[in-house]
Amino acid sequence: MAYQWDFSPVLANAPLLVEGLVNTLRITGTALVFGVALGLGLALLRLSPRRYLSWPAGFVIEVFRTTPPLVQLFWFFFAMPILVGIEMTPFMAGAVTFSIQSASFFAEVFRAGIQSIERGQWDGARALGMRHDQAMRRIILPQAVKRMIPAFMERAIELMKTTTLIATISYADLLFAANEVSQKTFRPLETYTVVALIYFVVIFLASQVARLVELRLARSGESTVH
């Protein structure tokens, strides 16, 4: 007795899945913006010659790189609200977790990029009378950012995959929509297959774009850091 595949109940619930995909992109975008900004801040602190700045930054980076994101998410959703005395929506908990988590990875990308710039660039900037932060902003970062783009895009794709964890605290992302639709239609096989394919298409396209950009950069003679 072969199983009769039937995708029509899933397609009838397409609006739910579309809404889920939009929410997935929303949490990914939010975490990406905050993650990159925070990651740059962490990297600059980490590279600071002052220990009282570099050590705490290093500690945050190590903790968030070394613990599982799902544990972090549960901590920010179930534990922190009691500690601080505020309500956390699933979206807020996810945004905070994925921002800090991706920031700690972005920080290492920034750091590798900044450290890959030759000493001479620093010397030249100093010879022109620039202070450390001026040299960083005007000379070092613009060059470093170009080398970081491939690693940066790779992390962004990882981040998108990580956002699926938010379904476990009932935020209505694409994976959560899949749970709902499969329970509604009693068609888990079709639902999860369709949702896996949606994720595949979106992430695969993003990966291809990243690959193209990396090829372009490689051709323009730019080394990349990972």
């Binding site: 199983y3 998108m160 995959k161 990580t162 699926t164 964890l165 379904a167 994976l175 899949a178 749970n179 499969s182 888990p188 096989l189 639902t191 999860y192 297959t193 949702v195 896996a196 994720y199 595949f200 992430i203 695969f204 990966s207």
Partner: peptide, 23 residues
């Protein structure tokens, strides 16, 4: 490689748990 690298691992786990047993 392309399929498993470009889908989230949680989706894969749930697929194996809820979808595969039907087959």
């Amino acid at each position: 490689v392309e399929f498993f690298r470009n889908t989230p691992v949680l989706v894969q786990i749930l697929w194996f748990y809820f979808a595969l047993p039907i087959l």
